[in-house]
Amino acid sequence: MTHLAYCLAAWLFAVGLYGVVTSRNMVHLIICLSVVQSSTYALLLAIGYRAGAAAPVFADIPSGTPAVDPVVQALMLTDVVVEVTIMALLLALAVLAYERTGKLDPNDLGMIRG
């Protein structure tokens, strides 16, 4: 049970990747990619967690109280915002691909046209 959070990260990664591999629709593929990415959030937060420690905010607790690792939380927080904009970029590509080819299935996009 002590490794449950790490297993959750691995499971999210695998299930997202399965979705990417078997995807028949580009929008579905992009959402699967975000599931893969959310596995990094679970992993980072699990690494930074300290048993019995407080949140790393010293506004109402004295400085020096044991707190969880703020570095991984900071990494995750910027990543969440950046991920959404990357998803938007990918969705824009999907919109363009659909406009050009009329298809949303990534398997049908094998041919490259000039």
Binding site: G48, P56, V57, F58, A59, S63, G64, A67, V68, D69, P70, V71, V72, Q73, A74, L77, T78
Partner: peptide, 22 residues
Amino acid sequence: GDLVNSLTVPERHITDAVTAVN
């Protein structure tokens, strides 16, 4: 992480360590 937690208030006067890191 522990170093950041102990330095953020005395050295940077920031009480949210996550913002201090960022």
